[in-house]
Design a protein around this nucleic acid. Structure first.
Lengths: 345, 345
DNA sequence: CTGAAAGCGCTTACAG
DNA sequence: CTGAAAGCGCTTACAG
């Protein structure tokens, strides 16, 4: 708001300049913290900025400087707990750094659709963070042109990620391994697995960690069941598993799947953990309040989002290159849904 | 990608112009669908665009035209089901209209912090959608300068919203009324209420609908309990209610609160719905899979988000002014958690 | 320490 | 139907 009460057009650096009695380049120097400005003129410019309520036009800044203090998160989903939490972490870190954050949703994994979304995200300017936990995300990460700054949030890579692009991950392979070991240590002969959709045609990191734990224990390796993302998928898989009396322990690719499995077991008269132990993945907010409360692996998704932004920020501000890295080690959370197998098995 | 394989600088309209042998204004006309361009030159320009992989620079477009095909969603939260779903709805509609979508999180309801976030959102250019379900959101909506295009996603307004700004809402007052009536019709003497934080100092629309139903039935009006947003708040409130044997029906401000209440009742040995009926609000994805599955009011949050964008789009494109309106009527979903009161009460 | 010029990639009148 | 000019609000060298 200026003195005359006119709020039509926001104040520009020229308005500030004339109010302060300097040229607009000097205003530019002040707002950019350039050192070579006389103290007294700086004070006058600052006063004018304050009086006119001047805010530097981000669009003009982006066009003139070629940099844009913006990040776009590309994701297949915004409502699932893990995805939403990563987005939250990115937003927190971006806000702290005065970056704008945009989102783009990959509604389909179809190549042309993914490419179109990547182009849209690129049009926004700034950097990209791609959540590559599913085929659409993996496709998007691959479709990002080489010259664009991008950070991938990925599953635990099978091998140390090569390439030149920064990636972050939590060690969900290790987490799956730990939860499976927990269940085996309770005395279960083996652990069945209801999988989330894998990010590629190959098996996911969670599946790998689960299988590895079984092998180390010399336990039989049942075929993983495909479960989708939500409780409905878990419910379908759970119905099948509930039919099989030899099933005494089930690991689920996420807590939503586990919820569906719990429900299916209940409907089929199998008690948890009396007859069957169930464990999930993620430690979603509701998991501690279910009955029975859910044993799970807690993943630090917001920390992952913050780390992804930090990495991207480093790339954009041309600081020292930062290597891909594991952000955190998941934590096993043992609750009511896991226990020893029934005696009669 | 251009023919020579140089991908350094993206093609500009000048590059396209020289490739097509026309002036860059003609290119501008073609990409803006201006009618007065000879068919043959349009074809040549289009071919050049295709060949050079030209994409119009959104930043330059915004600066030159003063319009920016962008919307920023301002919200206190991105992970709760309702909020995340509204965001999803906005994104869907925005994507369909080729708008970029940004998000800004209101981490605090403190006035200066809210004002700063609103300024940041305004800096992004384009329009604003403010989710005003809580004090931070309500404060943000109020802090948006008059000249900025904005749509509020609000609770059911007490009176037909005056003012000049478009608002959308689902009728959660009516929904609370319906769920309360449902519980009373089962024979409960009254219905207790665990509230979500109200958007203002006054009571929320949900509280109002609940109270109205009790009055119409001549039922006693217990004091609402404050529950926060998540299951932890519901759990605290539920522990108190579980102590009171006269409590036979509990309505919760959302499904997460209901989850915490269910857990507290279980821990205190009160069965649902045998001893106590519980109902929620929202129909979150997990609610159908809880044991007992949750009676609730289904709200169309993604539809709300889409409607908010449609309204904003209308404002930005200067079409006919669109009045604030109710987007949809919530639907009562009766599941296992509600039933008649125990006979002995 | 400060000012005048050119330019970022577009659009919007203004000519012809 | 098409081209030349001015300008959106800044930054980035270039002068002095």
């Amino acid at each position: 708001m200026n003195v005359t009460g006119h709020t039509r057009r926001p104040a520009s650096i020229r308005d500030v300049a004339s109010a302060a009695g300097v040229s607009y380049q000097t205003v530019s120097r002040v707002i950019n913290g350039h050192p070579s400005v006389k103290h007294s003129t700086r004070e006058r410019v600052l006063a004018a900025i304050d009086e006119l309520g001047f805010r530097r036009n981000a669009t003009a800044l982006a066009l003139a400087s070629g940099r844009s203090r913006a990040v776009t998160v590309l994701t297949a989903n915004t409502t699932h707990y893990g995805y939403a939490s990563i987005l939250q972490g990115v937003e927190e870190a971006a806000r702290a750094a005065s970056y704008a954050v945009g989102i783009g949703v990959l509604e389909s994994a179809e190549e042309a659709a993914v490419a179109a979304e990547v182009r849209r995200a690129a049009d926004a300017g700034g950097g990209l963070i791609v959540i590559a936990y599913d085929p659409a995300g993996v496709g998007a990460l691959a479709a990002v042109p080489a010259e664009l700054p991008v950070v991938g949030v990925v599953e635990t890579p099978a091998a140390p990620p090569g390439g030149d692009r920064p990636w972050v991950w939590t060690d969900d392979r290790e987490a799956a391994h730990a939860v499976t070991r927990h269940l085996l240590s309770l005395g279960h002969e083996t652990v069945h697995y209801v999988a989330i959709p894998s990010s590629t045609r190959r098996t996911s990191a969670r599946t790998t960690g689960w299988r590895q734990a079984l092998r180390e224990a010399g336990a039989p390796e049942p075929r993983p069941l495909q479960g989708n993302w939500g409780p409905a998928g878990g419910h379908r898989a759970g119905r099948k598993l509930a039919q099989d009396p030899s099933v005494t322990a089930i690991l689920c690719g996420n807590d939503d799947l586990a919820l569906g499995v719990l429900r299916a077991l209940h409907e089929n008269g199998r008690s948890v953990p009396g007859d069957v132990s169930v464990a999930g993945f993620d430690d979603a907010p509701h998991s501690a309040y279910l009955t029975p409360s859910l044993t799970t692996a807690r993943l630090d998704f917001t920390g992952l989002g913050r780390a992804a932004f930090a990495l991207l920020h480093g790339v954009l501000e041309q600081s020292a290159p930062i290597a891909p890295h594991r952000v955190s080690v998941p934590e096993l959370v043992v609750r009511e849904s896991s226990g020893p197998p029934p005696a009669h098995v």
